[in-house]
Design a protein around this nucleic acid. Structure first.
Lengths: 189, 189
DNA sequence: CACCATACGGAGGCTCCCTCCGCTTTATCA
DNA sequence: TGATAAAGCGGAGGGAGCCTCCGTATGGTG
């Protein structure tokens, strides 16, 4: 169950590659600690790198967010394949969506913006979307074939809906689960 | 069917009151035309007022957004009462939610941020929430009593879910309606 | 009409995003 | 190994936005 490799722009030269990693790591930590509106100056400082270096590698803050998203997306996809092996069609789909929500809550804005971004058209997100679709359609199609969910469902609709759940501020895990229950009920045949 | 009046901070002195109105009007227009990230300098300019005047009245951009929201919220509530009179319990609820989505799409970010803000705790939004709850619970309770929707539903859950639909960028009315169909199916008993 | 509480305007401080360019480091090849 | 070109580095600084501060103006009241 291989997935298309996600595009990265990790540079070739030794020093540049090192700084690239430092920046992505610093960004991941900063976004997790202080949210995605951390200033890029702060991230460059954390990475021990000049602001110019950051901007040469990542032309704007979105580009940096993208780089951080890659790992997260890969994990989301991998979980889908795990559930597909262990559970029945509907349960696998439900478990995947639930893990998606749980992950979004813990990572707050990061995954929230990710979901919003799934509607955008940058080449980067297009590639990501391919991977998510691959994993998600596997589960959704199985559940459709099984007759446990509506035949007219489209994966992106389901993901938008589930993504929307996590958009509210101060969303508690309990409330998120209640909302997901409603959505899951809406998916059933 | 009266609703609690929403709090405003319209000042007493003649010139101040005039400027208050100019600012709110300018803000409403600017937000509608260019989205809620219009700069406050631009809004002050439109209103023909100094930036200092804007800031004395509205200590930050959120405060200005709040003032603009009042009318919109009142309209949303009024529609609820209208549907309650004309339609059966479930249809009234569905129609209200659909009108809510349609309104959110057309007003874009304005209503989106409104929905997010429903989770916040400012005294202003608390007062707004009272009004929305009043209107929404009327519809939801009627549908519950009618047996057409699940008994365990909570109004704020439903609103969050519907609000989440409109959070994605580039959401087409068609897609929004498909998503709403899924949610409505999930509400049914 | 005089006085003062209230309001006005906009310069300016701060932060953030991003660009530009002179200097430094790396990789390559003879 | 040493020279050279290509690639990378850092941070000053321009531009924009948010917000504060304070000297000036004005509405309302006795």
């Amino acid at each position: 169950m291989t997935s298309t490799p996600l595009p990265t722009t990790r540079p070739a030269r030794a020093d540049a590659a090192r700084n690239y990693d430092l920046l992505v790591t610093a960004a991941r930590e900063a976004f997790a600690e202080h949210g995605t509106d951390t200033s890029l100056e702060e991230i460059a400082r954390r990475a021990g790198v000049g602001i110019g270096t950051l901007y040469r590698r990542f032309p704007n803050r979105t580009a940096l967010l993208e780089a951080v998203y890659v790992d997260e997306i890969q994990q989301v996809c991998n979980r889908a394949y795990g559930f597909a092996e262990k559970l029945g069609p509907y349960d696998a789909l439900a478990a995947w969506l639930r893990s998606f929500v749980g992950y979004s809550i813990s990572k707050k804005s990061l995954a929230g913006e990710l979901t919003v971004a799934l509607g955008k058209n940058s080449e980067f997100f297009t590639a990501c979307k391919v991977n998510v679709r691959q994993a998600g359609d596997l589960l959704l199609d199985a559940a459709k074939a099984d007759g446990s969910v509506r035949q007219d469902l489209q994966l992106m609709d389901v993901l938008r809906l589930v993504g929307g759940i996590t958009m509210g501020r101060d969303m508690s895990p309990e409330q998120a689960n209640r909302l997901l229950d409603i959505v899951l009920a809406g998916l059933k045949a």
